[in-house]
């Protein structure tokens, strides 16, 4: 659990965070989204005290981070950034093992953990563990960066636009990996991005930050359906927000169990966007759903209340 309690931060005269309070629950995937300069990265970095705050408190599991020894605090929190920041003189395996080594894990345990992470993050190219960062592709380097952040099984992981520099395909695949790992391990994730689609795809809850304040906090659907004000609406995308909504909602929530249809069945876990894509491609207005039932074009277009 991460708690921001009336946090304030200014660089000189420029106020970056203004009296901000927020609570991130255990096991939650929480996304801070906002334009550049909105203070979201600064807020993230107050958690591991890379940025000291001017007022208020930041609590991790109920304890004020300011009272904890700084290195011990950081070693207990995973951290990944956009530019990755791998150590160029260390191999992939050594880079992943940095925090376990700092924590003094036994060698055998470190080796096992590194192997596990290499598999978990699909870094399965043979011999990759012994390679140096400058031989990796951007996607591979970021996978190593994420593995390094997760290496010591932190309860909390901070990620600062980790996928911002990647191509769309690599980004989607990494998003899926991270989301899956987070769900399986129950890690508390605080994730910063300026990409609204990424925020809605990943976040259990999303906070939109504007000019150092929280403009709105809620589930992706809540932000799309009832934006708090005009600026939120603008950021969520106005009428295009409904397209975003399709990417958030699942077939299982809109389908009719008592109907049937012809053709290839879609999964109940697919998004409405996927279903609409199939309908457009196959020129059908209804599709069967795996396990029985069907999804209708009208169910997608007319939003259920």
């Amino acid at each position: 659990m991460i708690e921001f309690d009336h946090v304030r931060k200014a660089f000189g005269d420029h106020v970056v965070i203004e009296d901000l309070s927020l609570r991130v629950e255990d096991g939650e995937f929480f996304v801070l989204v906002g334009p550049s300069g909105s203070g979201k990265s600064t807020l993230l970095r107050t958690v591991n005290r890379l940025v000291p705050i001017d007022g208020g408190r930041v609590l991790v599991d109920g304890q004020d981070v300011a009272t904890q020894p700084i290195e011990a605090l950081r070693r207990g929190i995973g951290y990944a950034i956009q530019s990755v920041g791998l150590f160029p003189h260390r191999t992939v395996a050594e880079n992943i093992a940095v925090v376990p080594r700092l924590l003094g894990w036994p060698e055998a345990e470190i080796d096992a953990r590194v192997a596990e992470l290499i598999a978990l993050l699909k870094l399965d190219e043979p011999g990759i563990a012994g390679r140096y960062p400058d031989t990796l592709s951007g996607g591979q380097a970021q996978r190593v960066g994420v593995a390094r952040a997760l290496a010591a099984r932190p309860k909390i992981v901070l990620m600062d636009e980790p996928f911002g520099a990647l191509d769309p395909l690599t980004r989607e695949s990494l998003q899926a990996s991270v989301k899956q790992i987070q769900r399986e391990t129950g890690t508390t994730m605080l994730f910063v991005t300026h990409d609204m689609d990424e925020a809605f795809r990943l976040g259990d809850r999303v906070a939109l930050m504007l000019d150092g304040r929280l403009a709105q906090v809620g589930t992706p659907l809540a932000l799309i359906r009832s934006p708090a004000d005009e600026r939120v609406n603008e950021f969520v995308g106005g009428t295009r927000a409904y397209l975003r909504e399709l990417a958030v909602r699942r077939v299982r929530d809109s389908m009719r169990r008592d109907e049937a249809a012809e053709g290839d069945a879609v999964s109940p876990d697919a998004t409405l966007q996927d279903a609409l894509g199939v309908m457009l491609a196959e020129r059908r207005e209804r599709l069967p759903v795996q396990g029985g039932g069907a999804i209708l074009l009208s169910d997608i277009v007319v939003r259920p209340r």
């Binding site: 591991n48 290195e71 011990a72 950081r74 950034i81 920041g85 150590f87 925090v99 901070l158």
Partner: peptide, 27 residues
Amino acid sequence: VPADTREAARGLGMTRGQLLLRVQLPL
């Protein structure tokens, strides 16, 4: 040592001494 790498090292919980000995000195 690029600033990003230094920040990553600090963010992962290296002390100044560890940063100096394990990252800055070798590089």
